[in-house]
Design a protein around this nucleic acid. Structure first.
Lengths: 228, 228
DNA sequence: TCCATTCGACATGTATACATATGTAGGATT
DNA sequence: AATCCTACATATGTATACATGTCGAATGGA
């Protein structure tokens, strides 16, 4: 029998995290499978089936599924069963609109708060040539990450991270950004970087909002074509 | 080897019907205790201790704690143990800044999207007299809810809801809004409602941002005084 | 006295057994 | 033939047993 003695409320031990936990591996694996489209929207995420597939018990599976729900990649359906979250066109629009607002807020803050070195690095990122689609994707990510960290607001950055995770499933599963979009996108990046370099917060905000909206338009059009 | 001896004589298990699940009751109880301050920031949330306290096993406790973490009310510390989340002044500032950005984005959208009836209702809310502090608190909530729903963006509304949950712990635990703040706040509400009624999105955004920042200033000052 | 080592208590991580609810198939009833 | 009822398969909800790691106190030696 357990006899609970308890810790003082001031207990502040800091210890290295335990090794590779099953729940953590599951989470990463499922996340990548959902984002890559291997697990399509609407696919059932049965505790038992996943436990058998990964050779673990249901307990870590439960934890991973709860985390997935938290990330917005899974949702509960009938009988509280988990499914890969399926977004309709409207929810997708909401999601991109939210991303646009949050990221433009971050960009506006970054315009005030970035150091001179960060501003120059951002412009360099915007100007860097992309040899391939993978290159471009990487540059794109680094550009947006630079703005996220330049804003000096962990809470907003975290919000945007969560939203990006939810949109990435659609971005990755449905298309590689078209060549022409890359060109346009690069031009937008450069405008944004310039506005930030000039510490013009409101222009930055407006440019970034339009930039995200453009991404949404392109994706929505592709989805609509596929839907036909 | 594993030897299962059956249930103790005192076994009075009853698997809860959906909707009255142990994990759900735990979540609501803990949430209210944290927000009310009964469980202060930094307090340990031990699985075993909570399981014994509520007379359930660790499994539903785990689920409730994961949900609390999701809501930002708990965090994992040493050895992955859960604690009531403690925010420093900096994180609090981040939080309010994020709230300001998100809510001002919602307000700007509402300025474009609210129906005429909603606009009038909002002005009525802003003008309504508050007989008591509780009244004012209720009016305040309804005012902000009206904007949230008028923006027609569930994703942004959900983000703001999560942020509000995290700040409410501090608001509730630390102070009742001072009389003078009520007066100022009401004036700000009226300005915002007017800007929305005029569909002036940018003015709305700016007013709302300032409004949230004001709330933060007042709270921060009170916290600083207590800290002295 | 002070420090290194050992060991015990207890934390979380995981596996598994049991409880209960629900969808479904198939037969009985009307 | 349509409907209802029941048994069953299987899902999630929960409890408990076991695994492993860490902290802190006790201990023993320099």
């Amino acid at each position: 029998m357990y006899t609970y003695v308890g810790f003082a409320a001031t207990d502040q031990r800091k210890t290295a995290p335990l090794g590779h936990r099953a729940a953590e591996i599951l989470l990463e694996t499922l996340e990548s499978e959902i984002v890559s489209g291997a697990l399509p929207p609407g696919a059932p995420l049965s505790e038992l089936a996943l436990a058998e597939r990964f050779g673990v018990s249901r307990t870590p599976v439960r934890e991973a599924l709860l985390e997935l729900e938290r990330a917005g990649l899974a949702e509960r359906g009938a009988r509280r069963a988990f499914f890969v979250r399926a977004l309709g066109a409207e929810e997708l629009a909401d999601l991109f609109e939210a991303s646009g607002e949050v990221e433009s807020a971050l960009a506006a803050l970054a315009a005030h708060r970035m150091t001179e070195i960060e501003r120059q690095a951002l412009i360099a990122l915007a100007e860097a040539p992309a040899a391939s689609a993978a290159d471009y994707s990487d540059l794109n990510r680094r550009f947006h990450d630079a703005i996220k960290s330049g804003a000096r607001n962990a809470t907003l950055a975290q919000l945007l991270g969560g939203l990006d995770l939810r949109t990435s499933a659609w971005r990755a599963a449905n298309f590689h950004e078209a060549e022409e979009r890359q060109t346009t996108s690069r031009a937008e990046h450069l405008k944004i970087a310039t506005a930030i370099a000039q510490a013009d917060a409101e222009r930055t905000r407006s440019l970034m909002r339009r930039h995200v909206a453009q991404s949404h338009s392109v994706l929505a059009e592709i989805l609509a074509r596929r839907g036909r």
